[in-house]
Nucleic acid binder design. Sequence first.
RNA 1: GGAAAGUUGGCAGAGUGGUCGAAUGCGGCGGUCUUGAAAACCGUUGAUCUUCACGGGUCCGGGGGUUCGAAUCCCUCACUUUCCGCCA
Length: 424
Amino acid sequence: MLQLNFIREKRDYVIERLGVKHFKDAEQVIDEIIASDNKRRNTQTELDKIKSESNSLAKQIGIMYKQGEAAKAEELKKQTAVCKEREKELSEQLAECEAHVRELLLTVPNLPNENVPLGKSSEDNVVEVQKGEIPQLQEGAKPHWDICAEYDIVDFELGNKITGAGFPVYKRKGAKLQRALINFFLDEAEANGFTEVQPPLMVNENSAMATGQLPDKEGQMYSIPLDGYYMIPTAEVPVTNIFRDTIQKEKDLPLQYCAYSQCFRREAGSYGKDVRGLNRLHQFDKVEIVCIDTPEHSYEQLEKMKNHVAGLLEKLELPYRILRLCGGDMSFTSAITYDFEVWSAAQQRWLEVSSVSNFETYQSNRMKLRYKNSEGKTVLAHTLNGSALALPRIVAALLENHQTPTGVNIPKALQKYTGFDKID
RNA sequence: GGAAAGUUGGCAGAGUGGUCGAAUGCGGCGGUCUUGAAAACCGUUGAUCUUCACGGGUCCGGGGGUUCGAAUCCCUCACUUUCCGCCA
């Protein structure tokens, strides 16, 4: 959520930046927000005056009773009736204004950072780096879903029977590879200074609201209506919410956390070859990194997170590239996002395996995540997160890029985790 | 699932209808003392809205109610603890 004061002070800038994100009717919405807030302020000022009056009357009445001047007190009581009525009116009006402003604010996305490229779709994203050698595969190289079947390591049919599409069963060396990757990612994160946590896989409404999944992306999450919970689409939600409604000390920043979790996404609207095999699942495993930092240092921190992710891909010997997403392709809550993609040799295309973002104060404003700065002022912190990494497409890329006629080679860095060096 | 007791500032913990945003202790911060530190002593120390400012408003788990007046009484929801039941 954007900060009201910021919108008031930088109206034109806000509208211009929202244009980069292709937010419709920016001018109209922003002006309505400002107008509603003006009304809110006037109402509040008036209400405060009335309340101040009631308070002092009540005090006088109290004193009179104590001094045994009951008759005088009764007289004053009559006066309070008028105040009360007006108070009720005004506080209703105030609540209405507040609700309206909030409702509008929730529809406004985060502003893109100055470095965000202009553009509408994924074609306008900027390729920052490309690293690693694109492998030349042998004749008859297979896509990962065929490899999975050949070595019986991921069973999609079985998952269909038990649950439905997008819930595969990992078997044998496939299951071990999952465990190995999770441990590898967690160990690497820890070595880079991230503290491991294991969060709940379901969250309540407040948490989902704070990180931006609610109110409007409800259809993307699985919900448990009986208890009012949601299955997490990413560990970002529970881990960032650890810090909801807190005031941190500046000397404790940056906070750096990592968490393994399973993630659940409905993926409504997806179809076609994009969803084949491990490309898009309803349940998948991911190690997430989450950071809280000051506005002064958050972009440094973002670089650190990018380097961490790049290091993982290099150790897995996978060719990858880093994209800086354009305004039209970024998520609602992000100020800047870098996507990591690995080359899928058999599918002949790039697969997104990580997304690293700085949300600046957008999430922290929703969740009241603040810190005391060196001047002793309480200000909003910046939140950042990234996947490090999501498993399914990594598995797909490992299987495809490292396949040989006699089996799939496991990268050296991973061998001590898997306990085997080849899937055959 | 049943029963009971709780939820107060960073923490511990007073406060059961009136000047209580809240005693006290601990912790934090600043200072005195000290070569330095500790101890001791002194001072200071919640958040938030509004106002150029003075000031004013709100917040004692969340929401609602009673009352001229609520941390304090009532309703409701959530959570915590203990006992019983069930159980990996």
